[in-house]
């Protein structure tokens, strides 16, 4: 019964992935890719990975899809040459290569399926009480492997820096607003976006949630507001934006350095304030992730405060 559901899901994922690469037009490919992200979120749900499903729905499908859509509006139509059919001997060669590569993959797959590991779940659950936080995944992210999460924020920050240093390409299109329903929708929904982001941050302590989905929801709210005509200073080169974007990594690094000065090991939270510190980091990270994603979305546009 459950297997029928999963098999249907898997087949649809494979088909959409194929479409996402080989669909006739770029637009079709991007739509298929977005729908693929939606289905893979369902697959995470089926694998009991609700945390990942949440992040995939917010970041993997939602924000990535919006980025791709925005990029499509700036790209020229795909040249016909790029869609030319390949010659038969190249196809044959590719097929041969595929068969050669298939053998080790099949072997590896067989090996993977034979694995008899028990994972680290028991260990994590055993030390959960020391972490002063309810959710095992959040404990791993913010306590046991906190340096990974710090570096992850730094990766996102460097992405923003790279995109900014490439410079703007186009003035933001569209001074003309198509429908009066759009600003009304935004006025109605923006508080809901803020509320949901706050709720996800709060949930992250003892269940699926946390800074990354919350940041993505926050960013979605900002993007929606700016696309429907709200005035905001252009992110590039604005001091307030820069401060908000750096807030998360800075707070994280300051906590890590602070405990070092207080006589603990790097990233070893003092047990009495561990929960408090982690909540602080989570909030700072959530806010700056929201602003970073918004900056990534609008980076290619010169200035949307004077227009829109």
């Amino acid at each position: 019964m459950a297997l029928v559901f999963d098999a249907l899901l898997a087949l649809a994922m494979l088909w959409l992935a194929w479409q996402g690469v080989h669909a006739q037009t770029l637009f079709q490919a991007v739509v298929s890719f977005m729908l693929f992200g939606l289905l893979i979120a369902l697959a995470w749900v089926r694998l009991d990975a609700t945390d990942i499903a949440l992040a995939e729905a917010a970041l993997g499908s939602g924000v990535t899809g919006a980025l791709l859509f925005a990029a499509l509006g700036q790209l020229p139509p795909e040249p016909i040459r790029a869609r030319r059919r390949t010659r038969w001997h190249r196809r044959l060669l590719a097929l041969a290569w595929g068969l050669v590569l298939l053998a080790p993959i099949a072997l590896l797959l067989y090996g993977v399926l034979q694995l008899e590991g028990r994972g680290l779940g028991a260990e994590v659950n055993a030390s959960l009480s020391q972490a002063n936080i309810g959710s095992p995944v959040t404990a791993v992210l913010l306590n046991f492997r906190a340096i990974d999460t710090l570096l992850e924020l730094v990766v996102m920050l460097s992405a923003v820096v790279v995109v900014w240093s490439l410079g703007a390409t186009a003035p933001s299109p569209l001074p003309w607003l198509p429908a009066p329903s759009l600003p009304a929708l935004t006025r109605l929904l923006f508080p809901v976006f803020l509320l949901t982001a706050g709720y996800l941050l709060w949930r992250g302590e003892h269940g699926p949630g946390g800074a990354f989905p919350a940041g993505a929801v926050l960013a979605a709210g900002f993007v929606l507001a700016i696309l429907s005509g709200a005035r905001a200073p252009a992110p590039d080169g604005h001091t307030g934006w820069r401060l908000l974007i750096c807030l998360g990594p800075l707070a994280f690094a300051m906590v890590a350095g602070g405990v070092l000065l207080a006589g603990y090991v790097y990233f070893e939270y003092p047990p009495r304030v561990a929960g408090l510190l982690m909540i602080g980091i989570e909030i700072a990270a959530g806010i700056s992730i929201g602003f970073m994603l918004t900056a990534l979305f609008f980076a290619a546009e010169r200035d949307h405060s004077s227009q829109v």
Binding site: L38, G62, L182, L185, V223, L224
Partner: peptide, 21 residues
């Protein structure tokens, strides 16, 4: 909560499509 996120972010795709793509 996942359903809530889906419901919220489906608007983002349509608005980006209409305003940018």
């Amino acid at each position: 909560d996942v359903a809530l996120i889906f419901a919220l972010l489906s608007v983002l795709a349509v608005v980006t499509f209409v305003r940018r793509t």
